[in-house]
Design a protein around this nucleic acid. Sequence first.
DNA 1: CGCAAACTCTAGAACGTTCTAGTGCGCGTG
DNA 2: CACGCGCACTAGAACGTTCTAGAGTTTGCG
Lengths: 335, 335
Amino acid sequence: MQTPDRRITLADVAAEAGVSTALVSIVMRGAPGAGAATRERVLEIAQRLGYQPDSRARLLRSGRSRLLGVVFDVRHPFHVDVLTGLYDAADKAGYQLTLSAETPRRADRAAVDDLLQDRCEALILLTPSLRTADLAALAARLPVVAMMRAVRQRDVDVVQTDDRRGARQAVDHLVGLGHRRIAHVDGGTQHGAAERRTGYEEAMRDHGLGGLIRIVPGGSGEEDGARAAAGLLADPPTAVTTFNDLAATGLLDVLRRHGLDAPRDISVVGYDDSSFSRLAHVDLTTVAQDIEEMATRAVGRAIDRIETVPVARREVVIAPRLVVRGTTGPLPIRS
Amino acid sequence: MQTPDRRITLADVAAEAGVSTALVSIVMRGAPGAGAATRERVLEIAQRLGYQPDSRARLLRSGRSRLLGVVFDVRHPFHVDVLTGLYDAADKAGYQLTLSAETPRRADRAAVDDLLQDRCEALILLTPSLRTADLAALAARLPVVAMMRAVRQRDVDVVQTDDRRGARQAVDHLVGLGHRRIAHVDGGTQHGAAERRTGYEEAMRDHGLGGLIRIVPGGSGEEDGARAAAGLLADPPTAVTTFNDLAATGLLDVLRRHGLDAPRDISVVGYDDSSFSRLAHVDLTTVAQDIEEMATRAVGRAIDRIETVPVARREVVIAPRLVVRGTTGPLPIRS
DNA sequence: CGCAAACTCTAGAACGTTCTAGTGCGCGTG
DNA sequence: CACGCGCACTAGAACGTTCTAGAGTTTGCG
């Protein structure tokens, strides 16, 4: 049934129009150097034959691919949200995106290799789990932009959220509501955990609450939050900031099972504004990363490097934004 | 700082080894026709120079790309889960995947066009929103597999869940718990909604509950579920099956605000086993699509078509599986 | 009217591979 | 010793583009 025929090429269009392939190429690219009448006729014929340029051949010759490789992780709650922004930005700049996913059974090494074969001109990595040395090796071959992760490496560009500031915003918000005994559920060795912890500590001190600093070990999963909750139950604080939304929901769930309701008895702030935190059911106050802005900047930086525009600073730091929802409220009046 | 040099090509390796490019090509592909000693030496040199084949040039010449194009939607909760399975299956079959995403501002038309330019040999579309006519036009050019959506079109292959059966499983489960007054929140015009509704109706009739069939309009979003809940509150049933998980959470939330707790007062079953439904907080009983199996079958079917293996049936229907969690329980004893 | 400049178009090489059709060589065999 | 055969290897075309250089033709202008 299928008629895979031969694909329509420039030569077919050229033959039909009675011109050279070079001219058809000019017309298809919209490049100068073709008469208006011919241009129109060639376009019409191309349309009619269903001609579609072969990007492989095109970039094989031209050297340029105008292709940005993106590695994302299927497990990461908001990586897909970032994609939306990346597509927008790339589109606007006349670049294409080629995606490669990291999955539970496919390391980002493999994802990167796929992209390299595709000849993209720069790599944008979302929260890369590659070691710094590997990143450096990559960066020696083509421009590399790491998103949402700090990388101490001269040749790797970084676009990330000001996590210290995000954590401070969370604390400021809680203090504004009257809270003083505010704990922090730590993210352990996760990327960004150190910054968020530091932000929490600084903010506490700034508010004269240095003596009330209380950090409990946590992690990035729901179960980590649940474990942290168990540790807090003996002497519950009035508010908690967490490493991320997943940990926050785990925490909230255990607290609720023990009769502590948010925001009546305790306030909780998450981090990331993952899509599920918007569910009416969860309704989590959280720190949102400015995904739109980050995506735009990441694409911009990648293109700057490709086109060797000199850039002043290697790191781009974006301000986060507190999203107040239903899990935070005024200090409960203790009986 | 960056040394974009020239990329290492076959010719570089050939020169270094003192052989022809053709021979290097043979070695790199592992094709027969090279001596063991030479083979080893060439491989060593390629390794040392950091040679990496240029897939574009390769497939420009060979015609074959061994590339499967996948279109997914960033908004769809479990599309990313499907990717994991697709990668596994493609890997095993020696094919590569190239992804293109549909976003709020990027129609799947555009996503498909990108893939066509990339010369992939078949397309796998996750819940495509394309019209049937467009799908047919596509299928005339290359094999097309639609996942999770019925397509009444001879040339398009379909891999989907038996939604009627899934809905029946949900009803069976509830009836087994003693429920009789079971309502269904409909998905409206969404793909699969009709099948799920029919499954619900059939199951109700099979259990002799045809007279208790109650279908309320809903949709695919949380707010649709919330609206449906409002409609049920006047005379709440003891259990509800829903079109999907998002609608189920919206429903649950409104019910809870009105003092109806699941599973104490009412049981609710979702559909899809979206990742958020696993949250301890949500803990939703739901119908899971067998993502692993679907991915394997979709890739298999795509490859069959590429290699023109005759296939008996155009549609592959996969059995769903009920995942019992915390939102369903025995019939409450009415006071 | 003559000459340069501008415009439209073309020939042919180039990109990095794979493929086809060989070449040359050693070796076993009639 | 000539012959055929298999093996290791190579030359050169081919894939579908873009690019460079240049060939004709028209236009502009003194």
